[in-house]
Design a binder for these strands. Structure first.
Length: 492
RNA sequence: GGCGGCGUAGCCAAGUGGCCUAAGGCGACGGUUUGCAAAACCGUUAUUCGCCGGUUCGAAUCCGGCCGCCGCCUCCA
Protein backbone atom coordinates (compact mmCIF):
# COMPACT_ATOMS: atom_id res chain seq x y z
CA UNK A 1 0.00 0.00 0.00
CA UNK A 2 1.28 3.38 -0.90
CA UNK A 3 1.23 6.61 1.03
CA UNK A 4 -2.03 8.50 0.74
CA UNK A 5 -2.27 12.13 1.77
CA UNK A 6 -5.26 14.42 2.12
CA UNK A 7 -4.79 17.20 -0.39
CA UNK A 8 -6.56 20.41 0.67
CA UNK A 9 -6.60 21.53 -2.94
CA UNK A 10 -8.75 18.62 -4.15
CA UNK A 11 -10.32 17.92 -0.76
CA UNK A 12 -9.58 14.24 -1.15
CA UNK A 13 -7.07 11.68 -0.05
CA UNK A 14 -4.72 11.02 -2.93
CA UNK A 15 -1.95 8.55 -3.47
CA UNK A 16 1.31 10.43 -3.21
CA UNK A 17 3.55 10.39 -6.25
CA UNK A 18 6.59 12.63 -6.31
CA UNK A 19 7.43 14.80 -9.27
CA UNK A 20 10.85 13.17 -9.45
CA UNK A 21 11.11 9.51 -8.62
CA UNK A 22 12.51 8.87 -5.18
CA UNK A 23 12.85 12.54 -4.25
CA UNK A 24 10.47 14.82 -2.40
CA UNK A 25 10.55 18.54 -1.82
CA UNK A 26 8.58 19.78 1.16
CA UNK A 27 8.00 23.41 2.04
CA UNK A 28 6.36 24.32 5.33
CA UNK A 29 5.42 27.79 6.47
CA UNK A 30 7.73 28.56 9.37
CA UNK A 31 7.24 30.83 12.34
CA UNK A 32 7.18 34.59 12.45
CA UNK A 33 9.86 35.07 15.05
CA UNK A 34 8.55 37.78 17.33
CA UNK A 35 7.78 35.66 20.40
CA UNK A 36 8.46 32.26 21.95
CA UNK A 37 6.94 29.24 20.24
CA UNK A 38 3.69 27.96 21.75
CA UNK A 39 1.58 24.82 21.72
CA UNK A 40 0.16 25.69 18.32
CA UNK A 41 3.63 25.71 16.80
CA UNK A 42 4.26 22.35 18.41
CA UNK A 43 1.29 20.71 16.76
CA UNK A 44 2.09 22.11 13.37
CA UNK A 45 5.80 21.37 13.32
CA UNK A 46 5.58 17.98 14.98
CA UNK A 47 2.99 17.04 12.35
CA UNK A 48 5.24 18.00 9.48
CA UNK A 49 8.24 16.49 11.20
CA UNK A 50 6.32 13.20 11.15
CA UNK A 51 5.66 13.68 7.44
CA UNK A 52 9.33 14.11 6.62
CA UNK A 53 10.39 11.32 8.95
CA UNK A 54 7.90 8.88 7.47
CA UNK A 55 8.85 9.79 3.93
CA UNK A 56 12.47 9.13 4.78
CA UNK A 57 11.42 5.86 6.37
CA UNK A 58 9.77 4.97 3.06
CA UNK A 59 13.04 5.62 1.32
CA UNK A 60 12.44 9.03 -0.24
CA UNK A 61 15.23 11.50 -0.38
CA UNK A 62 13.56 14.47 1.26
CA UNK A 63 14.50 18.12 1.07
CA UNK A 64 12.67 19.91 3.85
CA UNK A 65 12.51 23.69 3.67
CA UNK A 66 10.93 25.79 6.39
CA UNK A 67 11.21 29.54 6.32
CA UNK A 68 11.83 31.98 9.12
CA UNK A 69 9.69 35.08 8.75
CA UNK A 70 11.68 38.02 10.02
CA UNK A 71 10.10 40.82 8.03
CA UNK A 72 6.87 41.78 6.35
CA UNK A 73 4.28 39.91 8.41
CA UNK A 74 1.82 42.59 9.34
CA UNK A 75 -0.48 42.66 12.31
CA UNK A 76 -3.49 42.47 10.06
CA UNK A 77 -4.17 41.08 6.66
CA UNK A 78 -5.63 44.20 5.20
CA UNK A 79 -2.02 45.20 4.71
CA UNK A 80 -2.56 48.22 6.88
CA UNK A 81 -1.15 46.96 10.14
CA UNK A 82 2.34 47.29 11.45
CA UNK A 83 5.11 44.81 10.90
CA UNK A 84 4.93 42.26 13.73
CA UNK A 85 8.68 42.08 14.16
CA UNK A 86 9.07 45.85 14.19
CA UNK A 87 6.26 46.23 16.71
CA UNK A 88 7.73 43.65 19.08
CA UNK A 89 11.22 45.12 18.64
CA UNK A 90 9.96 48.52 19.67
CA UNK A 91 8.33 47.01 22.73
CA UNK A 92 11.44 45.06 23.75
CA UNK A 93 13.71 47.91 22.77
CA UNK A 94 15.81 45.81 20.44
CA UNK A 95 16.87 46.07 16.86
CA UNK A 96 14.35 44.09 14.79
CA UNK A 97 17.05 41.77 13.52
CA UNK A 98 18.29 41.16 17.06
CA UNK A 99 14.77 40.35 18.12
CA UNK A 100 14.31 37.98 15.19
CA UNK A 101 17.60 36.30 15.95
CA UNK A 102 16.70 35.85 19.60
CA UNK A 103 13.36 34.22 18.88
CA UNK A 104 14.76 32.16 16.04
CA UNK A 105 17.19 30.57 18.47
CA UNK A 106 14.42 30.10 21.00
CA UNK A 107 12.32 28.42 18.33
CA UNK A 108 15.00 25.93 17.36
CA UNK A 109 15.73 25.23 20.99
CA UNK A 110 12.10 24.26 21.59
CA UNK A 111 11.82 22.25 18.39
CA UNK A 112 14.99 20.35 19.27
CA UNK A 113 13.43 19.42 22.57
CA UNK A 114 10.32 18.20 20.78
CA UNK A 115 12.70 16.03 18.76
CA UNK A 116 11.80 17.67 15.45
CA UNK A 117 14.52 17.30 12.87
CA UNK A 118 15.94 20.61 11.75
CA UNK A 119 14.82 21.57 8.26
CA UNK A 120 17.46 21.08 5.58
CA UNK A 121 17.14 24.76 4.75
CA UNK A 122 15.77 27.53 7.00
CA UNK A 123 15.72 30.54 4.71
CA UNK A 124 15.09 34.00 6.16
CA UNK A 125 12.75 36.38 4.40
CA UNK A 126 15.14 39.26 4.98
CA UNK A 127 17.87 37.33 3.21
CA UNK A 128 15.84 37.08 0.01
CA UNK A 129 14.86 40.67 -0.69
CA UNK A 130 16.46 40.68 -4.13
CA UNK A 131 14.58 37.59 -5.22
CA UNK A 132 11.35 39.05 -3.90
CA UNK A 133 11.88 42.27 -5.83
CA UNK A 134 12.52 40.05 -8.83
CA UNK A 135 9.16 38.36 -8.54
CA UNK A 136 7.34 41.66 -8.07
CA UNK A 137 9.04 42.99 -11.21
CA UNK A 138 7.92 39.97 -13.18
CA UNK A 139 4.35 40.28 -11.95
CA UNK A 140 4.28 43.97 -12.93
CA UNK A 141 5.68 43.15 -16.35
CA UNK A 142 3.08 40.45 -16.90
CA UNK A 143 0.25 42.75 -15.85
CA UNK A 144 -0.75 40.92 -12.68
CA UNK A 145 0.31 43.74 -10.41
CA UNK A 146 0.14 47.50 -10.25
CA UNK A 147 2.09 50.15 -8.46
CA UNK A 148 0.33 52.72 -6.35
CA UNK A 149 1.99 55.38 -4.26
CA UNK A 150 5.23 53.48 -3.72
CA UNK A 151 3.56 50.15 -2.97
CA UNK A 152 2.83 47.30 -5.34
CA UNK A 153 -0.35 45.24 -5.17
CA UNK A 154 -1.38 42.00 -6.77
CA UNK A 155 -4.50 42.45 -8.87
CA UNK A 156 -6.65 39.47 -7.96
CA UNK A 157 -9.11 40.15 -10.74
CA UNK A 158 -6.37 39.22 -13.22
CA UNK A 159 -5.84 35.81 -11.74
CA UNK A 160 -8.56 33.37 -12.66
CA UNK A 161 -9.08 31.01 -9.76
CA UNK A 162 -8.04 33.30 -6.93
CA UNK A 163 -9.26 31.64 -3.75
CA UNK A 164 -9.44 28.14 -5.19
CA UNK A 165 -7.63 26.56 -2.25
CA UNK A 166 -9.88 27.95 0.44
CA UNK A 167 -13.01 27.84 -1.69
CA UNK A 168 -13.75 31.52 -1.60
CA UNK A 169 -14.65 33.98 -4.23
CA UNK A 170 -13.80 37.62 -4.35
CA UNK A 171 -17.35 38.95 -4.19
CA UNK A 172 -18.10 37.20 -0.93
CA UNK A 173 -14.94 38.53 0.58
CA UNK A 174 -15.73 42.08 -0.34
CA UNK A 175 -19.15 41.70 1.22
CA UNK A 176 -17.63 40.31 4.41
CA UNK A 177 -14.72 42.66 4.59
CA UNK A 178 -14.29 43.79 8.14
CA UNK A 179 -11.25 45.88 7.76
CA UNK A 180 -10.52 49.21 6.33
CA UNK A 181 -9.51 49.12 2.73
CA UNK A 182 -6.47 50.96 1.57
CA UNK A 183 -7.37 53.73 -0.87
CA UNK A 184 -4.44 52.62 -3.04
CA UNK A 185 -6.06 49.30 -3.86
CA UNK A 186 -8.17 48.83 -6.95
CA UNK A 187 -9.97 45.94 -5.35
CA UNK A 188 -10.34 45.33 -1.61
CA UNK A 189 -9.10 41.75 -2.06
CA UNK A 190 -5.86 42.85 -3.69
CA UNK A 191 -2.87 42.14 -1.51
CA UNK A 192 0.48 43.83 -1.07
CA UNK A 193 3.55 42.47 -2.82
CA UNK A 194 5.71 45.39 -1.79
CA UNK A 195 4.99 48.02 0.83
CA UNK A 196 6.28 51.52 0.87
CA UNK A 197 8.20 52.24 4.07
CA UNK A 198 7.70 55.36 6.08
CA UNK A 199 10.91 57.24 6.78
CA UNK A 200 11.15 56.03 10.41
CA UNK A 201 10.56 52.39 9.54
CA UNK A 202 13.69 50.52 10.62
CA UNK A 203 13.53 47.70 8.10
CA UNK A 204 13.53 48.95 4.55
CA UNK A 205 15.32 48.23 1.33
CA UNK A 206 15.76 50.10 -1.93
CA UNK A 207 13.59 48.92 -4.79
CA UNK A 208 12.47 50.19 -8.20
CA UNK A 209 9.45 51.65 -6.36
CA UNK A 210 11.41 53.44 -3.66
CA UNK A 211 12.32 52.38 -0.13
CA UNK A 212 10.13 49.62 1.23
CA UNK A 213 9.79 46.06 2.36
CA UNK A 214 8.18 42.89 0.96
CA UNK A 215 4.64 41.74 1.63
CA UNK A 216 4.38 38.69 3.80
CA UNK A 217 2.95 36.26 1.25
CA UNK A 218 5.78 36.84 -1.16
CA UNK A 219 8.58 35.20 0.80
CA UNK A 220 7.11 31.70 0.66
CA UNK A 221 6.59 31.85 -3.08
CA UNK A 222 10.09 33.12 -3.68
CA UNK A 223 11.97 30.86 -1.31
CA UNK A 224 10.12 27.67 -2.17
CA UNK A 225 10.82 28.32 -5.85
CA UNK A 226 14.44 29.10 -5.19
CA UNK A 227 15.16 25.95 -3.23
CA UNK A 228 12.62 23.43 -4.50
CA UNK A 229 11.65 24.57 -7.97
CA UNK A 230 8.70 26.19 -9.68
CA UNK A 231 6.45 23.25 -8.93
CA UNK A 232 6.89 21.67 -5.54
CA UNK A 233 5.60 18.35 -4.26
CA UNK A 234 4.25 19.30 -0.86
CA UNK A 235 3.47 22.57 0.85
CA UNK A 236 2.36 22.42 4.45
CA UNK A 237 1.13 24.86 7.01
CA UNK A 238 -1.50 25.62 9.59
CA UNK A 239 -5.14 25.64 8.55
CA UNK A 240 -5.47 29.30 9.45
CA UNK A 241 -2.99 30.14 6.74
CA UNK A 242 -5.08 28.56 4.02
CA UNK A 243 -6.65 31.93 3.46
CA UNK A 244 -5.37 34.35 2.61
CA UNK A 245 -1.72 33.36 2.83
CA UNK A 246 -1.70 30.19 0.74
CA UNK A 247 -4.19 31.43 -1.81
CA UNK A 248 -1.98 34.46 -2.29
CA UNK A 249 1.07 32.26 -2.72
CA UNK A 250 -0.71 30.28 -5.40
CA UNK A 251 -1.77 33.42 -7.24
CA UNK A 252 1.71 34.98 -7.21
CA UNK A 253 3.60 31.84 -8.08
CA UNK A 254 1.34 30.60 -10.83
CA UNK A 255 1.04 34.05 -12.34
CA UNK A 256 4.82 34.33 -12.35
CA UNK A 257 5.75 30.87 -13.60
CA UNK A 258 2.69 29.71 -15.56
CA UNK A 259 3.04 26.35 -13.84
CA UNK A 260 1.18 24.59 -11.07
CA UNK A 261 2.73 25.84 -7.84
CA UNK A 262 2.04 22.98 -5.40
CA UNK A 263 0.89 19.43 -6.07
CA UNK A 264 -0.17 18.47 -2.54
CA UNK A 265 -1.33 21.03 -0.01
CA UNK A 266 -1.35 19.77 3.58
CA UNK A 267 -2.91 21.66 6.47
CA UNK A 268 -2.80 20.80 10.13
CA UNK A 269 -5.68 21.71 12.39
CA UNK A 270 -5.50 24.09 15.31
CA UNK A 271 -5.13 23.65 19.03
CA UNK A 272 -7.41 24.74 21.80
CA UNK A 273 -6.55 25.03 25.46
CA UNK A 274 -9.15 23.76 27.92
CA UNK A 275 -11.63 23.67 25.07
CA UNK A 276 -11.17 27.24 23.93
CA UNK A 277 -9.10 28.75 21.19
CA UNK A 278 -5.70 29.76 22.41
CA UNK A 279 -5.24 33.48 22.26
CA UNK A 280 -3.08 36.10 23.79
CA UNK A 281 -6.14 38.00 24.88
CA UNK A 282 -7.57 34.97 26.67
CA UNK A 283 -5.63 33.73 29.63
CA UNK A 284 -4.74 30.42 28.04
CA UNK A 285 -1.76 31.19 25.87
CA UNK A 286 0.89 28.61 26.74
CA UNK A 287 4.40 28.70 25.33
CA UNK A 288 6.45 25.55 24.99
CA UNK A 289 8.93 26.81 27.54
CA UNK A 290 6.07 27.18 30.00
CA UNK A 291 4.79 23.69 29.25
CA UNK A 292 8.23 22.13 29.65
CA UNK A 293 8.78 23.92 32.95
CA UNK A 294 5.22 23.81 34.24
CA UNK A 295 5.19 27.56 34.79
CA UNK A 296 1.66 28.43 33.70
CA UNK A 297 -1.33 28.70 35.95
CA UNK A 298 -3.27 26.23 33.81
CA UNK A 299 -0.67 23.53 34.40
CA UNK A 300 -0.18 21.54 37.59
CA UNK A 301 3.29 20.27 36.74
CA UNK A 302 6.07 20.35 34.18
CA UNK A 303 5.82 18.06 31.18
CA UNK A 304 8.48 16.18 29.30
CA UNK A 305 8.79 17.65 25.80
CA UNK A 306 8.39 14.20 24.34
CA UNK A 307 5.18 13.71 26.34
CA UNK A 308 3.90 16.84 24.61
CA UNK A 309 4.98 15.29 21.34
CA UNK A 310 3.20 12.06 22.20
CA UNK A 311 -0.02 13.91 22.99
CA UNK A 312 0.16 15.49 19.56
CA UNK A 313 0.66 12.08 17.95
CA UNK A 314 -2.27 10.66 19.87
CA UNK A 315 -4.71 12.41 17.57
CA UNK A 316 -4.74 13.08 13.85
CA UNK A 317 -2.97 16.12 12.46
CA UNK A 318 -6.17 17.27 10.71
CA UNK A 319 -8.20 17.10 13.91
CA UNK A 320 -8.21 19.93 16.39
CA UNK A 321 -6.26 19.12 19.53
CA UNK A 322 -7.30 20.29 22.96
CA UNK A 323 -4.45 20.79 25.37
CA UNK A 324 -5.45 20.47 28.98
CA UNK A 325 -3.53 19.59 32.07
CA UNK A 326 -5.40 16.27 32.23
CA UNK A 327 -4.55 15.41 28.63
CA UNK A 328 -0.90 16.27 29.18
CA UNK A 329 -0.86 14.23 32.35
CA UNK A 330 -2.26 11.18 30.55
CA UNK A 331 0.29 11.57 27.77
CA UNK A 332 3.08 11.85 30.31
CA UNK A 333 2.04 8.57 31.93
CA UNK A 334 1.84 6.78 28.61
CA UNK A 335 5.15 8.20 27.46
CA UNK A 336 6.75 7.07 30.70
CA UNK A 337 5.47 3.56 30.17
CA UNK A 338 7.03 3.33 26.71
CA UNK A 339 10.29 4.82 27.90
CA UNK A 340 10.60 2.51 30.91
CA UNK A 341 9.88 -0.50 28.74
CA UNK A 342 12.53 0.39 26.21
CA UNK A 343 15.07 1.01 28.96
CA UNK A 344 14.24 -2.30 30.63
CA UNK A 345 14.45 -4.10 27.31
CA UNK A 346 17.89 -2.71 26.56
CA UNK A 347 19.19 -3.43 30.03
CA UNK A 348 17.98 -7.01 29.72
CA UNK A 349 19.65 -7.42 26.34
CA UNK A 350 22.99 -6.90 28.04
CA UNK A 351 22.55 -9.96 30.23
CA UNK A 352 20.12 -12.17 28.27
CA UNK A 353 21.48 -15.48 27.04
CA UNK A 354 21.92 -16.05 23.34
CA UNK A 355 19.84 -18.61 21.57
CA UNK A 356 17.24 -19.16 18.91
CA UNK A 357 14.63 -16.64 17.81
CA UNK A 358 11.02 -17.32 18.65
CA UNK A 359 9.28 -17.66 15.29
CA UNK A 360 5.91 -16.81 16.73
CA UNK A 361 7.30 -13.48 17.91
CA UNK A 362 8.71 -12.84 14.47
CA UNK A 363 5.25 -13.23 13.01
CA UNK A 364 3.67 -10.96 15.63
CA UNK A 365 6.22 -8.26 14.99
CA UNK A 366 5.65 -8.51 11.27
CA UNK A 367 1.95 -7.91 11.80
CA UNK A 368 2.65 -4.96 14.05
CA UNK A 369 4.87 -3.36 11.47
CA UNK A 370 2.21 -3.88 8.82
CA UNK A 371 -0.46 -2.30 11.00
CA UNK A 372 1.84 0.61 11.70
CA UNK A 373 2.60 1.21 8.04
CA UNK A 374 -1.02 0.81 7.01
CA UNK A 375 -1.97 3.49 9.51
CA UNK A 376 0.78 5.87 8.48
CA UNK A 377 0.04 5.29 4.81
CA UNK A 378 -3.51 6.41 5.45
CA UNK A 379 -2.81 10.13 5.68
CA UNK A 380 -0.33 9.77 8.54
CA UNK A 381 -2.57 8.19 11.13
CA UNK A 382 -0.20 8.54 14.05
CA UNK A 383 -2.91 7.46 16.46
CA UNK A 384 -2.79 3.97 14.97
CA UNK A 385 1.00 4.15 14.88
CA UNK A 386 1.08 4.98 18.56
CA UNK A 387 -1.32 2.16 19.36
CA UNK A 388 1.18 -0.24 17.74
CA UNK A 389 3.85 1.09 20.07
CA UNK A 390 1.71 0.13 23.04
CA UNK A 391 1.10 -3.33 21.60
CA UNK A 392 4.85 -3.62 21.31
CA UNK A 393 5.19 -2.47 24.91
CA UNK A 394 2.83 -5.18 26.08
CA UNK A 395 4.69 -7.83 24.11
CA UNK A 396 8.04 -6.64 25.41
CA UNK A 397 6.85 -6.67 29.01
CA UNK A 398 5.51 -10.18 28.74
CA UNK A 399 8.79 -11.37 27.22
CA UNK A 400 10.73 -9.66 29.99
CA UNK A 401 8.69 -11.64 32.51
CA UNK A 402 10.08 -14.83 31.00
CA UNK A 403 13.71 -15.42 31.94
CA UNK A 404 14.22 -17.75 28.97
CA UNK A 405 13.68 -14.99 26.38
CA UNK A 406 16.80 -14.83 24.23
CA UNK A 407 18.91 -11.86 23.36
CA UNK A 408 18.11 -12.40 19.69
CA UNK A 409 14.38 -12.18 20.29
CA UNK A 410 14.75 -9.07 22.42
CA UNK A 411 16.86 -7.52 19.72
CA UNK A 412 14.03 -7.86 17.22
CA UNK A 413 11.79 -5.84 19.52
CA UNK A 414 14.47 -3.25 20.05
CA UNK A 415 14.85 -2.81 16.30
CA UNK A 416 11.14 -2.14 15.98
CA UNK A 417 11.19 0.35 18.85
CA UNK A 418 14.07 2.13 17.14
CA UNK A 419 12.62 2.15 13.65
CA UNK A 420 8.97 2.90 14.39
CA UNK A 421 9.12 4.60 17.76
CA UNK A 422 12.45 6.31 17.16
CA UNK A 423 12.98 7.05 13.46
CA UNK A 424 9.35 7.67 12.56
CA UNK A 425 7.48 8.82 15.67
CA UNK A 426 10.45 10.35 17.43
CA UNK A 427 9.37 9.36 20.93
CA UNK A 428 11.94 6.61 21.55
CA UNK A 429 15.48 7.82 22.05
CA UNK A 430 18.59 6.08 20.83
CA UNK A 431 20.28 6.56 24.13
CA UNK A 432 18.82 7.49 27.50
CA UNK A 433 22.15 7.80 29.27
CA UNK A 434 22.43 11.46 28.34
CA UNK A 435 19.42 12.24 30.46
CA UNK A 436 21.25 11.27 33.60
CA UNK A 437 23.37 13.63 35.57
CA UNK A 438 27.12 13.45 35.29
CA UNK A 439 27.48 11.75 38.63
CA UNK A 440 25.22 8.86 37.77
CA UNK A 441 28.08 6.46 38.30
CA UNK A 442 28.45 7.68 41.85
CA UNK A 443 24.70 7.71 42.50
CA UNK A 444 24.46 4.19 41.17
CA UNK A 445 27.15 3.01 43.54
CA UNK A 446 25.58 4.73 46.54
CA UNK A 447 22.09 3.47 45.82
CA UNK A 448 23.44 -0.03 45.36
CA UNK A 449 25.01 0.08 48.81
CA UNK A 450 21.60 0.94 50.26
CA UNK A 451 19.95 -1.77 48.18
CA UNK A 452 22.41 -4.27 49.67
CA UNK A 453 21.65 -3.05 53.19
CA UNK A 454 17.95 -3.38 52.57
CA UNK A 455 18.45 -6.85 51.15
CA UNK A 456 20.22 -7.88 54.35
CA UNK A 457 17.46 -6.35 56.46
CA UNK A 458 14.82 -8.24 54.51
CA UNK A 459 16.74 -11.47 54.84
CA UNK A 460 16.80 -10.86 58.60
CA UNK A 461 13.09 -10.01 58.51
CA UNK A 462 13.85 -6.52 59.77
CA UNK A 463 11.11 -5.00 57.65
CA UNK A 464 11.01 -1.79 59.62
CA UNK A 465 14.55 -0.97 58.52
CA UNK A 466 13.91 -2.25 54.98
CA UNK A 467 10.89 0.02 54.60
CA UNK A 468 12.71 2.95 56.11
CA UNK A 469 15.47 2.64 53.53
CA UNK A 470 12.95 2.38 50.72
CA UNK A 471 10.95 5.37 51.95
CA UNK A 472 14.01 7.53 52.41
CA UNK A 473 15.10 6.85 48.86
CA UNK A 474 11.56 7.44 47.64
CA UNK A 475 11.57 10.88 49.24
CA UNK A 476 14.69 11.63 47.23
CA UNK A 477 12.88 10.59 44.05
CA UNK A 478 14.49 7.18 43.77
CA UNK A 479 12.10 4.27 43.30
CA UNK A 480 13.16 0.70 44.06
CA UNK A 481 11.76 -2.13 41.99
CA UNK A 482 11.96 -5.62 43.43
CA UNK A 483 12.40 -8.27 40.78
CA UNK A 484 12.49 -12.02 41.49
CA UNK A 485 16.27 -12.18 41.39
CA UNK A 486 17.37 -8.63 42.11
CA UNK A 487 16.36 -5.09 43.01
CA UNK A 488 16.79 -2.23 40.54
CA UNK A 489 16.22 1.48 40.90
CA UNK A 490 15.07 4.36 38.75
CA UNK A 491 14.40 8.05 39.11
CA UNK A 492 10.76 8.96 39.60
C1' G B 1 -22.49 37.28 7.23
C1' G B 2 -19.03 33.77 4.26
C1' C B 3 -16.19 29.03 4.63
C1' G B 4 -15.12 24.56 7.29
C1' G B 5 -15.01 20.87 11.12
C1' C B 6 -16.74 17.99 15.15
C1' G B 7 -20.28 15.14 18.63
C1' U B 8 -17.55 7.26 19.81
C1' A B 9 -16.70 4.48 27.36
C1' G B 10 -15.28 8.64 33.56
C1' C B 11 -11.39 11.40 30.28
C1' C B 12 -8.24 11.55 25.54
C1' A B 13 -8.76 9.11 20.84
C1' A B 14 -8.75 5.64 16.11
C1' G B 15 -12.30 3.57 13.01
C1' U B 16 -16.31 6.45 8.02
C1' G B 17 -21.03 0.68 4.44
C1' G B 18 -20.26 -6.10 6.30
C1' C B 19 -13.38 -8.63 9.26
C1' C B 20 -17.00 -3.33 14.58
C1' U B 21 -20.54 -8.32 19.61
C1' A B 22 -15.91 -0.53 18.04
C1' A B 23 -8.04 -0.05 18.12
C1' G B 24 -4.84 2.27 21.60
C1' G B 25 -3.83 5.42 25.89
C1' C B 26 -5.12 7.67 30.77
C1' G B 27 -8.07 6.63 35.01
C1' A B 28 -10.82 3.09 38.02
C1' C B 29 -11.78 -1.79 39.93
C1' G B 30 -10.60 -7.25 40.69
C1' G B 31 -6.64 -11.00 40.45
C1' U B 32 -1.23 -12.83 40.03
C1' U B 33 3.35 -11.39 42.22
C1' U B 34 5.35 -9.16 47.05
C1' G B 35 6.95 -9.60 54.07
C1' C B 36 3.96 -5.12 52.75
C1' A B 37 4.36 -1.95 48.68
C1' A B 38 5.92 -0.05 43.93
C1' A B 39 6.71 -1.77 39.06
C1' A B 40 5.11 -5.55 35.88
C1' C B 41 1.59 -9.19 34.20
C1' C B 42 -3.68 -11.10 33.58
C1' G B 43 -8.78 -9.66 33.60
C1' U B 44 -13.13 -6.20 33.92
C1' U B 45 -14.73 -1.23 32.49
C1' A B 46 -19.35 1.36 25.03
C1' U B 47 -24.67 -4.92 22.66
C1' U B 48 -23.17 0.73 21.41
C1' C B 49 -21.20 5.32 18.37
C1' G B 50 -25.55 13.40 20.13
C1' C B 51 -31.17 12.84 18.96
C1' C B 52 -35.11 11.51 15.34
C1' G B 53 -36.34 9.59 10.71
C1' G B 54 -34.80 7.43 5.89
C1' U B 55 -31.75 4.42 2.18
C1' U B 56 -29.75 -0.71 2.37
C1' C B 57 -29.93 -7.77 2.98
C1' G B 58 -26.60 -4.89 6.34
C1' A B 59 -24.92 1.91 9.06
C1' A B 60 -20.88 4.54 14.17
C1' U B 61 -19.95 4.80 8.90
C1' C B 62 -24.56 7.11 3.37
C1' C B 63 -29.02 10.80 3.09
C1' G B 64 -32.55 14.41 5.53
C1' G B 65 -34.07 17.09 9.85
C1' C B 66 -33.07 18.64 14.83
C1' C B 67 -29.87 19.69 19.09
C1' G B 68 -25.03 20.83 20.95
C1' C B 69 -19.82 22.25 20.49
C1' C B 70 -15.57 24.30 17.93
C1' G B 71 -12.46 26.66 14.33
C1' C B 72 -10.96 30.01 10.13
C1' C B 73 -12.08 34.76 7.68
C1' U B 74 -8.82 39.59 13.34
C1' C B 75 -4.23 38.72 17.52
C1' C B 76 -2.39 33.25 16.20
C1' A B 77 0.91 27.80 13.55
Amino acid sequence: MALNLYNSLTRRKEEFEPLNKGRVGIYVCGPTVYGHAHLGHAKSYVSFDILTRYMRYLGYEVTYVQNITDVGHLTDDADEGEDKIATAAKKENKHPMALAEYYTRSYFEDMDKLNCFRPDISPRASGHILEQIGMVTTLLKKGYAYEANGSVYFDVSKFENYGKLSGRNIDEMIAGARVEVSPDKKNPADFALWKKAERNHIMQWPSPWGMGYPGWHLECSVMSTKYLGKTIDIHGGGLENQFPHHDCEIAQSEATNDLQFVRYWLHNNMVTVDGQKMGKSLNNFITLKQAFSGTHERLTKSYDPLAVRQLILNSHYRSPLDFSDAALFAAQSGYGKITETVKALRKRMEIASTGSIDEEIVEQLKQMREKFEAGMNDDLNTSVGLSVMFELVRLAQSLLEDSRTTKETLNLLDVLFDRLGGDVLGIVKEDYQQDATADEGLTDKLVNILIEQRKDARTNKDFALADQLRNTLDDMGIVLEDKPDMTTWRMK
